[in-house]
Design a protein around this nucleic acid. Structure first.
Lengths: 188, 188
DNA sequence: ACCTCCTATGTCACTCTTGACATATGCTTC
DNA sequence: GAAGCATATGTCAAGAGTGACATAGGAGGT
């Protein structure tokens, strides 16, 4: 988790609240955390010398602590980025449901998967819009390997790839379920 | 988690150890659990009347407890299958690394993503082989909506879709990183 | 005045998950 | 006979993550 915060702080100094806004609906679409995780984690990172903070007084709103990544933190982050990853667990409740879909009322199942298809399709379109915007606004930066913009664009591409695959799978399964219903439970 | 076990027990009675073998490298490729989760969970499910067990004595190996799903458990499982899912969290360490890849040595990054590309490609090929085997061996069952084989095949399809998308993304990113290196850090 | 909302930071209890520890049977291999 | 392995079942401590609770300043509306 700490590396998600360090990754954000490597781009710019941020307060806990800023981090919460960025994490509380994904960093580059593939990580998330609530503020109840972020504040203790920042304290831990500060204890380990990875980040520092200074209090910034504000007039029209409460004061905030702005965190900056330290040289140590930046070094650790760089090491971590290219370190090997363990296979990691995938957990997807919808796929788990699909595993028991043979027990379900096919019409209800169609509704479930068509709904999910729509949701993932909507997310896909949002990502594609953002991608188009980045290509237009950020242009050459997307080819600059040492630019954060390149990295953000790269994670967005995974989001697009993920949502496209998910949408297609939902559509495929919903179609099979519909065909089966029309066919009376076996191939027509 | 309980529904993963119920989903397996709905197909056939199994011991904790059998469940462990099936869970300890995914149910339908999208869930996993160690035996330290399974045994307490089975006890919990039994306490709730979702499963029952009988002890089966064996000659050449230790006795085992074989668990069977109850009518209550089957009913709960059926209800759950078509119940709506909350968006759910995606957590992927490699994508998180990609978010900070602009800080890394591009050559090391290429190694990381090419390695991951290879691993996901291998998984994809394994899934595709299993899929081809299912199509050959299970034939018409794959169109029978009330057959567990249809459901297993459906989850496998998501595995194929996932691994294909992942492989392509790794390849795309590795290629961009390589092009950038050759181009000297910006577009050639 | 009161209420609600956004900003801002924090704690706490609970659940989920993992990895290590623990025990026992019986088979095969050295 | 000792060592290692597959089967078989469990516990426990620690970490990760979630949701609720708690506090507080200032803005804007009624």
């Amino acid at each position: 988790m700490g590396f998600a915060l360090l990754g954000l702080l490597a781009q710019e100094p941020l307060s806990g609240y800023d981090l919460k806004l960025r994490m509380e609906r994904r960093v580059g679409n593939f990580w998330s955390a609530g503020h109840s995780q972020i504040y203790p984690e920042l304290a831990r990172l500060e204890g380990e010398g990875m980040v520092e903070h200074r209090v910034v007084e504000q007039q029209d709103r409460p004061d905030k602590k702005v965190y900056t990544i330290t040289d140590t933190g930046l070094h650790e982050l760089k090491e971590w980025v290219t370190a090997p990853v363990e296979p990691g667990v995938v957990r997807d409740e919808l796929v788990l449901k699909a595993y028991s879909v043979w027990l379900a009322d096919p019409e209800k199942a169609v509704t479930l998967f068509r709904d999910q298809q729509r949701l993932h399709k909507e997310q896909l379109l949002r990502y594609e819009e953002i991608g188009a915007w980045m290509e237009e606004e950020w242009g050459e930066d997307l080819y600059r390997l040492d630019s954060p913009r390149f990295a953000i664009y790269a994670t967005l591409q995974r989001g697009i790839s993920y949502e496209r695959g998910y949408t297609e799978w939902c559509a495929w399964l919903a179609y099979r379920l519909e065909s089966g219903v029309r066919g009376g439970g076996a191939r027509a």
